Amino acid sequence: MIRTQYYTEDVNDLPRFTGPAGLKVLGNWVTSDIQLSPLAALEAIDLVAAAQAGKGFAPEDLDGNAHTATVTPRGVEVDNHVVEHVRGEFSPDDAVRVLLVAPPPRYRRRRPLESRGWGDRVIWYP
């Protein structure tokens, strides 16, 4: 069960951002490009914190499949590659808030269908 106020699961058990409408572009970036990866979310949080702390912080781009997020001392700017007019600028606090409430990914258990021993190819099925 996911216990968060900003994300729910859709009919395909995929996360969908349901937070405030003003943060939808940011939430879509988290679900589609960060893909709720804990390490990628932590990296983005660290970049936002470094941008807030350092005056000499040079803007850094996080490129993904559908978005580019640019982290600057002013906040995070998200541009959608697919739909050109979908973009947003968000404060560092809003960016961290959306990144922190991202639900952890659900991993399906997988079992080997066939294994012949060490070094042999293992065939997996869902």
Rank of each mutant, 00 (worst) to 15 (best):
I2V: 13
T4N: 07
Q5A: 09
Y6Q: 15
E9D: 07
E9C: 11
D10Q: 08
N12Y: 14
D13T: 07
F17C: 02
L23A: 13
L23F: 07
K24L: 11
L26N: 06
G27T: 02
W29Y: 09
T31G: 02
T31D: 08
T31W: 03
D33Y: 00
I34P: 00
I34Q: 02
S37R: 03
L39Q: 13
I45A: 00
Q52G: 12
K55L: 10
F57T: 04
L62V: 09
A66W: 10
H67D: 00
A69C: 00
T70W: 10
P73E: 03
V76A: 02
E77L: 07
E77W: 10
V78D: 01
N80S: 08
H81N: 05
H81C: 02
V82C: 06
H85P: 00
H85E: 15
G88S: 05
G88Y: 09
E89H: 07
F90I: 04
D93H: 08
V96N: 04
R97P: 00
R97F: 13
L99V: 14
L99D: 01
L100N: 13
V101C: 14
P103F: 10
R108I: 03
R111W: 10
E114I: 05
G117E: 04
G117L: 04
W118P: 11
G119L: 04
V122F: 06
I123V: 14
I123T: 12
Y125H: 13
Y125M: 13
